[in-house]
């Protein structure tokens, strides 16, 4: 039910002073009843005393997309190798004369490399240099490109920071989706909790505009980000605010980091970390985790 209320509170108020945007955009709710303002953790986003605090905060799910492809499992690799063998066994004869000039070094190289692939796929009698009736070798042999052969080594699929256990680097876990979490003091007790960067909504401001402003306020201006859509991708209602007169809602906006890095202001934010979904569970509070886990990517 509260989700419904939250959505309806996002709808443009018919008597509100702020009209220029269409209904599909999420705008602030203009509440008529006095509501206890939730504690804002960030002084940058605090409002002037005249404006009324709103029970809505925006949180930004800042994502670093995978940088490299996923390492296939052993089963997948066995499947691919099997299919490659079938394809190699069944393919049409390769028209060398169409693709290469007769006797060119490129052709020799290709033939030898193909012989290697053939031998790797099917075993020893295959992929050996061709011989005529007397047993003399005709065509290229492995020695033909022996001198110019250099083994091409692929780059390692794990970065150095993976072994160091550095959670602040954007190079870690290149195959995975990473998300930014910050550690900040919350509430009157001042306990330190991990959460997504968040901030308040100012009067007349749209959710995605507030998200952009809050992200700069919390994480600094030294990164390029892109907020994916104007619509929030999820909403969280903390259990402490379940009573009728102190309702508060956190709307999540998705963003991508394109360049740069987070630079936090040590006064307000204690720490930050780029984490996968699985690494987050132990850091987040149970309610918060249950609220956000379904909007994060499993891999």
């Amino acid at each position: 039910m509260w989700v419904r209320n939250a959505l309806s509170s996002c709808r443009r108020h018919p008597r509100g002073p702020f009209h220029p945007f269409s209904r599909s955009l999420a705008t602030e709710a203009s509440t008529s009843s006095p509501v206890a303002p939730p504690e804002s953790s960030l002084p940058q986003t605090s409002h002037p005393k005249t404006s009324q605090r709103l029970p809505i905060t925006t949180a930004i799910i800042l994502n670093r997309s995978p940088l490299i492809t996923r390492t296939p499992s052993l089963f997948e690799r066995a499947y691919y190798a099997y299919q490659a063998r079938i394809q190699r066994a069944l393919h049409n004869p390769f028209p060398y004369e169409f693709w290469f000039k007769e006797g060119s070094p490129l052709e020799t190289r290709f033939r030898v490399e193909d012989m290697k692939r053939e031998r790797k796929a099917f075993g020893k009698p295959f992929g050996m240099p061709a011989t005529d009736a007397e047993g003399n070798v005709v065509g290229p042999t492995y020695e033909d490109i022996g001198l110019q052969e250099e083994d091409e080594e692929s780059m390692p699929r794990t970065h150095a920071v993976d072994t160091q256990g550095d959670v602040k680097s954007l190079d870690r876990k290149g195959q995975r989706n990473l998300y930014l979490l910050i550690k900040a003091k919350s509430g009157e007790e001042g306990e330190e909790i991990w959460k997504f960067p968040e901030g308040g909504l100012q009067k007349g401001e749209l959710l995605h505009e507030a998200a952009a402003r809050d992200l700069t306020a919390v994480c600094g201006p030294y990164m390029d980000t892109w907020i994916v859509s104007r619509k929030p991708i999820g909403v969280y209602n903390p259990p402490s605010s379940s009573s009728e007169n102190s309702k508060s809602f956190t709307f999540f906006c998705k963003a991508h980091i394109l360049a740069g890095q987070v630079r936090i202001d040590k006064k307000h934010v204690l720490d930050f970390a780029w984490l996968t979904k699985q690494e987050m569970e132990s850091r987040l509070e149970t309610d918060y985790w249950l609220g956000v886990k379904d909007i994060l990517s499993d891999f």
Partner: peptide, 23 residues
Amino acid sequence: VGETHSCRLREHFHNTLQDDLMY
């Protein structure tokens, strides 16, 4: 004959593009 290697752009679509386009 099935696939002989994983498809990079299809993975990119499923990992990143699909979510963003839905939003």
